[in-house]
Design a protein around this nucleic acid. Sequence first.
DNA 1: ATAACCAGCTAATACGCATTAGCGGCGACG
DNA 2: CGTCGCCGCTAATGCGTATTAGCTGGTTAT
Lengths: 349, 349
Amino acid sequence: MALSKRLTQRDIARLAGVSQATVSLVLNGVSGADSRIPAETRDRVNRVIRETGYAPDPVARRMVQGLNRILGVFTYEPAFPSAQADFYTPFLLGIEEAAENLGYDLLLMTAAARDAFGRKRMFGESNRLRLADGCLILGGQFDGEELAQLVASDYPYVAVGRRDDVGGPVRYVGADYVAATATLVGQALAKGHRRFAYIGAPGNSESIMDRRRGFDGALKGAGELVHFEETEHGNPATQLASIRQSGASVVFFGELTEAAAFDEHARAVGLAVPGDISIVVLGSRPRFQQPERHFTAYAIPREEMGRQATAMLVRTLADPAVVEQVLLACEIVAGDTLAPPNPTKDSFK
Amino acid sequence: MALSKRLTQRDIARLAGVSQATVSLVLNGVSGADSRIPAETRDRVNRVIRETGYAPDPVARRMVQGLNRILGVFTYEPAFPSAQADFYTPFLLGIEEAAENLGYDLLLMTAAARDAFGRKRMFGESNRLRLADGCLILGGQFDGEELAQLVASDYPYVAVGRRDDVGGPVRYVGADYVAATATLVGQALAKGHRRFAYIGAPGNSESIMDRRRGFDGALKGAGELVHFEETEHGNPATQLASIRQSGASVVFFGELTEAAAFDEHARAVGLAVPGDISIVVLGSRPRFQQPERHFTAYAIPREEMGRQATAMLVRTLADPAVVEQVLLACEIVAGDTLAPPNPTKDSFK
DNA sequence: ATAACCAGCTAATACGCATTAGCGGCGACG
DNA sequence: CGTCGCCGCTAATGCGTATTAGCTGGTTAT
């Protein structure tokens, strides 16, 4: 029955003894009192539709209506292997939940063409953006040029994560790293820390710069940055040596994995955390959180970001003129790796 | 530039001084020697395309070609909340990886209509299946009627997970629960167990029945099933009491969470696992695996299932006549919860 | 010289649907 | 009795593309 042979409205029309236009009107026209199609005809058509299991072709529909009820999801890094999956999954969960509630399907644009450097490109050979009504963009490393092109175009989009202007304001739902980082610095100051270390990933993406801005801003005048390091896979031993020499009593990490490695090493060589040295993590990835270690950190509301970005995108479809920018607060995770500095150890400088 | 105003082939044609058909031919026609369009014209058109950033509308393309390079993903249960996510994510990772390699985008059909009972339906009011070239179906609880409809139709699909015939063979990539379960039963027998308990989820879905078939088949004649229980959230205390009374020396669990609860309780009341009682789990969910407890179990190759199902679907698009059925082997996880029975305790029966 | 042919293009069509203009028939109204 | 207006429907059109048939002008074969 069902899909065999691909039914069209013409088939339905023939079976019901009406014209194709009438079928379409029955399907989409107002069904109220001011309808121009009487209940009798309407019922006849509907009966045929039910009996045959006809369903309109969404593609043809889109051709004429211009909309699809599809939201695209473009990720600059693929969502696998698993390490990436941990990063993307929370976003996607939020997006999926919101999309389901709003009645949209999601198009994961995994097939995007890559440029000469192997990076995925939105505006490539086969620009498939138009398959969706609009799209969400995820990823740590945005391509500035592509983003600018998007901003300049009339294509509805929302970035997940704050983005600097590129020839115009970028529509985004981000997390307020600046405020959250500043809060944690404030807590460290309140506990008496004055000498700070900062170890973060290199790069100048917004997420990295926001952490640094929050850190610098909150520290200004009240504390001193005595060790600064940009690294992705640092050597904990080297880091510890530098930090001891600098006299820092607390280390801020941009990456949880870095912090975990450092923590393990520090304790292995007999240092107490946070007794001898405090550790603060700026953000976290749920799965990497070891059960026995609760770092003082903040939680990035990834699911909520996904949900709100999706909702914003749908709003954008209705009113493309508005450019919203939303920053969500991060929840501070108290943890147990931030304590007052150890006055004794402080002297080993 | 780019997307502003939505360029069409007609625009390109006008700018290049040719007809729309020529533009289309330049884009899709053979570019070799037997092309009927000379390099000069070809270059002129290509230049305009490059300058304007034109990209063909995939929807219009689909209208005429019938294909989209989109694979649908239909899940009967939504992928959130997180508990479900742990179940679906590995499948999706495999699917995404394969889809990317094959050059297909993925359409997550989250917006599917629901029936009176709140269950998602593929063939509902708005059947959007045709948006994709074919689709993958995930979920523990398939709707038999819908599956039959799918099998009867000419719509390309592949089920992830083995499915019984419904008016015809179902195209699937599944895991061989029967064999894996039988292997574990064999190991228990080899260690000397003769009295078995089985605690699994209720229902008659293929995955549940396959475990049971593997269990029964391997046990036949060699051991005795002295306790059988169907439950989703069982009471460990009650379970333990029944099992002690039955004299079973090993318990097979269909669900990891059930096993974990039972294990915890057993040890809390002073029983040794596996010293006094062995535990075997039929399958597992990665994330729930506690670090300190490694159950004897088997691993369901979820990512690989996703990959192979995707590949099979793409093969189906090329040759819709063939119905493949693939069962992947599960890897046996030795673990440390299966040991020879304790002859002393055995007497408390 | 005329037919046959070929290269290089274009006109026309179809895909399935939504939408608009409009047609035939009938009752109401002047 | 003529006209207006409304009801119930249909014909026609367009969305952007791929594709096929075919046109035009020039060259070659007969």
